[in-house]
């Protein structure tokens, strides 16, 4: 199933390009949730609340923050580089975490249908070729 892994690599490449490059063309405006919570407040050009009364005023600090907070990399002043790199790291981290966890949790022994022959099952094929199933090769 080499084509499957090719598809997977292609999909990952698309995700990396979207998060690494296209993300810099994303709209800077607040999203539907954020803007709904700002309804009733006046906001300046930088998006800071300047007056009025709205749910967003109750916002509190994030517990962690961290070097990648707000989809940037602390210490990199170039916005394009900072956003793009943080996006690439996020895609790789999400793929590793989700893919790794799903791989560990995957169904193994049950229902070994012959259609689902994967590269991971090649050792089984090697074993089978060692058994005297066919008299000569």
């Amino acid at each position: 199933m080499r084509r499957f892994w090719g598809f997977l690599a292609g999909g990952l490449l698309v995700a990396l390009l979207l998060a690494g490059v296209v993300s810099n063309f994303a709209s800077p405006h607040p999203d539907g949730l954020d803007s709904s919570l700002r309804e009733g407040c006046t906001v300046d050009a930088d998006g800071e609340i300047t007056g009025g009364s709205c749910p967003a005023q109750q916002e509190k600090e994030h517990e962690i923050g961290g070097p990648l907070a707000d989809y940037g990399i602390a210490g990199i002043d170039n916005d394009v580089l900072s956003t793009g790199l943080s996006g690439v790291l996020g895609v790789l981290l999400t793929f590793a975490l989700a893919g790794g966890a799903f791989w560990l949790f995957r169904r193994r022994d049950t229902d070994p249908t012959p259609q689902q022959v994967d590269p991971t099952q090649e050792p089984l094929d090697a074993d089978r070729s060692g058994t005297p199933a066919s008299s000569q090769g």
Binding site: M1, F4, L8, G11, L12, V14, A15, L16, L18, A19, V22, S23, F25, A26, S27, P28, H29, D31, Y71, G87, G90, V91, L92, T94, F95, A96, L97, A98, G99, G100, F102, W103, F105, R106, R107, Q116, D118, T120, Q121
Partner: peptide, 28 residues
């Protein structure tokens, strides 16, 4: 777990990574 076979597991990893990427793309 019933759905997660050798192919769906990595595919699901890709789906999660793809969703992370596209969530960054705010559209007007």
């Amino acid at each position: 777990r019933q759905d997660l076979d050798d192919r769906l597991a990595p595919m699901a990893g890709l789906v999660a990574a793809f969703i992370f990427a596209v969530q960054m793309l705010n559209f007007p």
